[in-house]
């Protein structure tokens, strides 16, 4: 069995582990500093699978957008990150979960320029463009779950 599979997830309280090991972690998102932490952990995970500079930047930027969404629109929540798959098929998977108001019209929320938070409305649609896999589940009053994944094309 691979070391990063099937390990129990640790709570996000031990800040010492920051970035050193990004597999199977839960990062709470409640402040702006947590958004930075999400970026650091995502960077470490992409390094673990041997991603290139641009692959890492894309994924970390997407993580930053999604973490900010969780914080600003979801009223806070958490990010789960894990490395899944075998050998050259390994990928970094991140799931952003909040119990906020939810998104009434996902299709519209994924359109460029749609914004409720006073921004440019690039958060969701931008993150979708930057990741290789993107999945979203949300309903009014039921919170939002966004799951993204990326892998490296490097041999």
């Amino acid at each position: 069995m691979r070391p990063e599979q099937g390990r129990p997830t640790r709570g996000g309280t031990d800040r010492e582990s920051d970035g050193a090991d990004a597999a199977g972690e839960v990062i709470p998102i409640h402040t702006g500093a947590d958004v930075s932490r999400v970026r650091r952990v995502a960077t470490a995970a992409m390094a673990t699978i041997g991603a290139s500079k641009i692959e890492t930047t894309r994924m970390v930027t997407a993580a930053s957008e999604l973490a900010r969404n969780t914080l600003e629109h979801g009223g806070g929540g958490e990010m789960r990150i894990a490395i899944v798959g075998r050998m050259s098929k390994r990928k970094v998977e991140m799931t952003f979960i909040d119990q906020g108001p939810g998104i009434p019209d996902i299709h519209r929320a994924l359109t460029d320029g749609y914004s409720t938070g006073g921004g440019l409305g690039l958060g969701l649609s931008g993150a979708k463009r930057l990741c290789k896999e993107f999945e979203i589940k949300s309903a009014p009053g039921e919170g939002t779950i966004v799951k993204v994944a990326s892998w490296t094309e490097r041999p």
């Binding site: 641009i54 930047t57 894309r58 930027t61 957008e65 460029d112 440019l120 690039l122 649609s125 931008g126 463009r129 930057l130």
Partner: peptide, 8 residues
């Protein structure tokens, strides 16, 4: 590159 892909 990422900023351009992001649409900024």
């Amino acid at each position: 590159i990422t900023l351009v892909e992001l649409g900024m």
